[in-house]
Amino acid sequence: MVKYLDTPGGFVTKAAASLTLDAGCEFGGGVDCGSQYFLGFMAYHRAWFLQDRLALTVGGGAITNPGRYLVLLPPINGTTAASGTPYFTANPGDRYRAWDFQVAADVIPRPFITFRVEFNHRAANVPYFSGPGGVTPPGGNQGAPGSLVDGWSPDLVKTENRLTGALMVKL
Score class of each variant (00 low, 15 high):
V58Q: 12
P132K: 15
A62W: 14
T64E: 15
G40F: 10
I76V: 15
G146Q: 01
T85S: 09
I76P: 01
F27R: 00
A105F: 08
G40P: 03
R68K: 15
L19Q: 01
F101D: 05
M42I: 13
V31M: 05
Q36S: 02
F38T: 03
A105W: 04
D155Q: 12
S147G: 07
F49S: 04
A43D: 03
A144W: 06
L39G: 00
V2N: 12
S153K: 14
Y128H: 00
A47W: 06
D32T: 06
N141F: 09
F88D: 02
Y128K: 04
L156D: 01
A105R: 01
M42P: 00
P138S: 14
P145L: 00
F49L: 08
R162G: 01
G139F: 13
E118Q: 15
N77R: 07
P86H: 12
C33Y: 04
D106E: 10
P138Q: 15
D22N: 13
Y96K: 07
W99Q: 05
D94L: 00
A166G: 09
M168N: 08
G40C: 01
V126H: 04
T64V: 15
V71R: 02
S18M: 12
H121I: 06
G9W: 11
R122A: 12
F88L: 06
G59S: 11
D52N: 14
Y128D: 03
Q102T: 15
G133C: 06
G84P: 02
Y37L: 01
L163K: 10
G133L: 06
N65G: 04
H121T: 06
R97E: 11
G143Q: 11
G40E: 07
D94Y: 08
I108W: 08
T64Q: 15
W99A: 04
T64G: 03
Y44I: 03
T80N: 11
A105L: 08
G67W: 01
L148S: 06
M42Y: 09
I108V: 14
R68N: 08
V71M: 09
N141L: 02
N120C: 07
A82H: 11
A166N: 04
G67S: 08
S130H: 09
T159V: 13
G10S: 15
L163I: 14
A47E: 05
T7R: 12
L148M: 13
N120Y: 11
G59Q: 07
L5M: 09
N91K: 14
T57L: 12
I108L: 03
N120E: 10
R110G: 00
N125F: 15
T64R: 13
P138T: 15
G30E: 10
Y69E: 00
H121R: 14
V58A: 10
G61P: 04
G30C: 06
L21D: 04
G40I: 05
G78V: 09
T114M: 09
G67Y: 07
R110S: 01
D150K: 02
R162C: 02
W152T: 00
T89E: 13
Q102I: 12
P145E: 06
V126I: 15
T159D: 11
T114G: 03
E118H: 08
K170Q: 14
T64P: 00
A81V: 14
D32E: 05
G28Q: 06
T164W: 08
S147Y: 09
G151H: 09
P86Q: 15
D94V: 05
